[in-house]
């Protein structure tokens, strides 16, 4: 067991290493001289040369990589010249907004998938299942940024149920005292219920849009899982023991497939970052996604490099955690198990 965990940990570390090298090499190929971009148009050649030297751009690529990793361990993610802040500061400002959006989307996606596919499978009629299949195909094929626009048009502008693309709070509402940076959580901690309602009201629509794709993916998976489980012998046994339909379903069938959602859900967690990349821009959500989109247009490579690395680490950590939970919970997935 310990060996197994160590082995997976080793693979995870190797993967992060590979990803960091990849991101590093890719972004050192940025056309145009980053030093020139930072120094501005009016800078003299000597000033640029001095800046190149201070940024270490003249060193050998291996030395540069070593320096980069060294500064990462000191918590230094580099400097974002387009905003004039250190990348660490930017991330600290932006991460909570994305995290808040991402976490609620995960909840929506998983809860929605479990409920919808349970209804589709439990109901003996054909149309709930059909409806789920068609709607999940549409949701998987829908461009999130376009759905976001559509949702804004219908639900916020025409019907006025949700606020427009104004960010995390209505204008005039003060942000709650900073504890976690997630406004809904902070508002509850501070006991500001009005702020909580306002923040939640701004959060729900983007979260639904981000959750749509993952919801579709998970609901298909869970539906197939449920239908497979219904054919298992233990279900027949439970039924022949005289249990009613619902208890058989709720106690024996539904939990059986939940565990299998875990690896897929962990993959999607990383994917949510990509989803929020697109949706944040539409809703004016001040998170990592809109920051990255701006940074790329500004060729602010330190920011992009940090986000790439963050995404890779998030992915590796979440899938490692899912892996380990699976191993602990389900002996069949242990390496070497037969």
């Amino acid at each position: 067991m310990i060996r197994n965990i160590l082995k997976r940990l080793g693979v995870a570390l190797a993967t992060v290493f590979g990803a960091s090298v990849f991101a590093f090499v890719l972004l050192r190929k940025v056309p145009g001289d980053p030093a020139r971009a930072i120094a501005g148009d009016g800078a003299t050649d000597e000033a640029i040369a001095a800046l190149r030297k201070s940024m270490g751009l003249d060193d050998n690529i291996f030395v540069q990589y070593g320096n980069y990793v060294g500064s990462l361990f000191r918590g230094d993610f580099g400097f974002s010249y387009s905003t004039g802040n250190s990348v660490g500061t930017l991330l600290a400002q932006r991460l909570p907004a994305t995290l808040e959006l991402g976490l609620l989307s995960v909840v929506f996606a998983i809860a929605g998938a479990v409920i919808a596919s349970s209804i589709a499978v439990y109901s003996r009629r054909r149309w709930p299942d059909r409806f789920l299949r068609i709607s999940s195909s549409l949701a998987m094929g829908s461009p999130p940024f376009w759905i976001a626009l559509l949702a804004l048009l219908v639900l916020s502008i025409q019907l006025g149920i949700f606020p427009g693309p104004e960010g995390r709070l209505s204008p005039g509402v003060l942000r709650p005292p900073n504890v976690t940076g997630m406004f809904t959580v902070d508002a509850v901690i501070a006991g500001q219920w009005g702020t909580f309602v306002n923040a939640a009201w701004h959060l729900i629509l983007p979260a639904i849009v981000v959750a749509l794709g993952p919801f579709a993916f998970l609901s298909r998976l869970y539906r197939n899982q449920l239908r497979g489980t219904l054919r298992e012998t233990f279900v027949t046994v439970a039924q022949s023991h005289g249990l009613r339909r619902f208890p058989v379903y709720a106690r024996h069938v539904a939990p059986h497939g939940l565990l299998s959602l875990l690896p897929a859900a962990s993959l999607l967690f990383a994917d949510l970052l990509a989803g929020s990349l697109l949706v944040e821009k539409v809703f004016g959500w001040p998170g990592i996604g809109s920051m990255t989109a701006d940074a790329i247009i500004q060729k602010d490579f330190a920011v992009v490099q940090a986000v790439l690395l963050l995404a890779a680490i998030l992915y590796v950590v979440v899938s490692l955690a899912a892996d380990l939970i699976m191993t602990a919970a389900d002996p069949r997935t242990r390496v070497g198990a037969r």
Binding site: V11, A14, T15, V16, F17, G18, A19, V21, F22, A23, L26, L27, A270, D271, L273, A274, L277, L278, T292, A293, I296, V304, V307, L308, A311, A312, Y315, V316
Partner: peptide
């Protein structure tokens, strides 16, 4: 493994 730990869109953006 090293490539797949980036979201596709982010990699294409970079």
């Amino acid at each position: 493994n090293s490539i797949l730990c980036f979201p596709a869109i982010l990699l294409a953006m970079a």
